[in-house]
Design a protein around this nucleic acid. Structure first.
Lengths: 239, 239
DNA sequence: GAGTGGTCTAGACCACGAG
DNA sequence: TCGTGGTCTAGACCACTCC
């Protein structure tokens, strides 16, 4: 764990414990408190700004944000988390997963390309329905190469594959590219998301990579349009 | 303009001019070439990685990315640009704007809150249809406070409001928060996006801020689901 | 003008990649 | 093992906010 991430986590917990009123001490003071340099504090604050926890204003200070309630009945899929399901639904109720299907097969052309594998390598083909308090939440289609993520079982699929990768395989999860689109409902959506035929779907296609750059997951997550929105915070203006 | 953004732009242009084959020189060499420190080069490369132009691998180097063609008939709305219309459609054809309506009125409650204005301040209420080669592209609903962006005219609306803010008002554009949702088509969509009643819409709600933190725009952009996708690159794993 | 965050430098050590 | 990017330090100057 790097120092700036560590400090970001500590500050986040301190904020949640309400140890600060509405404003953090200045960066020099935090640098002294955490026995580090101001640059590291600055990076840690940037992380919290990207999580929409702080609002950092040059010449003024770092302010703790109040929650925005734009789409009250929606679950936010944050842009800074890979495992959207666990992070967005955490604390919203009792979460369970129903494995609709789980097979091992040869990869299709698109999967060979995106996952950078060979035609003879095998992939898991997983369909899961996610439930919150027993009610339909999301529908997830996941493809993963067997050789990259060995030993996947039904047990793991009922929990978090990401925790399995981190805690059991001890692999570092890196970056991900996502494309968000809208789509019409299909037969599966109607069954597993409790949709009407004229509802619409928010669909997120993701390619996720390990820290070493190896792609390990190709997935599509489908949400009912009235229950999920994708949220982007504090996008930088780099032009 | 900061040094690292300046260098990022120079490197981007050099890449477009194909001055590098597939890999950039190492950071130390670039630091010497641009007469700066390695940290600054590193930040510049991070900017290009966020734009999906480079793939930077620790211990190996910075590689120039090939284009991904996942959704070939779609326009990508990049996460790192505010003025989605101009940046995503640039170079795709002849772009024009049809101003559906342009009025000045008192703000509604949501607008007062989000734009941090007073009930007696006035706002522009703008509806624009965006066309590419004369064909319907997007539908944009925009609310802006008159006191923050004074002097807006029909002429400006036919071009880019963002360029007006930057070049005429000389204001710095800062960050933005966005929420992406799917939605059913309404009567306007059918008219201005050439939709069928059972089509679906990808909708982006945005609050944009000036560099000094003042909110200046509340907008919704509606795209046909078969012609637009929102793309997120290289999201950091900060946990 | 004083306080605060944004950025830059120069040098250092560490973690990862490739041979 | 060696080359490369990731991170950290200590100090500096600048840009912006606020009084």
């Amino acid at each position: 764990m790097t120092k700036y991430i560590e400090i970001a986590n500590k500050l986040e917990h301190a904020i949640l414990r309400k140890e600060y009123d509405h404003k953090l001490p200045n960066e020099a003071a935090l640098a002294h408190q955490y026995q580090t340099s101001r640059v590291v504090i600055s990076r840690a604050l940037k992380v919290l700004a990207a999580k929409n926890i702080l609002h950092v204003i040059q010449g003024s200070g770092a302010y703790i944000k109040k929650n925005d309630t734009t789409f009250p009945n929606m679950v936010e899929l944050s842009a800074s988390e890979h495992d959207g399901f666990y992070h967005s639904m955490m604390g919203k109720g009792n979460i369970t997963s129903h494995v609709v299907s789980f097979t091992i097969r040869k990869p299709e052309l698109e999967e060979i390309e995106k996952l950078k594998i060979k035609p003879n390598d095998e992939v898991y083909d997983i369909i899961r329905q996610r439930l919150v308090n027993g009610h339909p939440g999301k529908l997830e289609y996941t493809i993963m190469p067997v050789k990259v993520i060995p030993g996947l079982t039904l047990d793991v699929l009922h929990q978090s594959v990401y925790n399995y990768i981190r805690n059991t395989l001890h692999l570092g999860i890196g970056k991900a590219n996502r494309i968000i689109v809208a789509d019409k409902v299909d037969a599966y959506d109607q069954d597993y998301l409790d949709c009407k035929p004229d509802d619409v779907i928010l669909s997120v296609h993701q390619v996720a990579y390990l820290k070493n750059g190896c792609p390990f997951e190709l997935s599509e997550t489908r949400d009912r349009y009235d229950r999920a929105g994708y949220i982007l915070f504090e996008v930088n203006n780099n032009s």
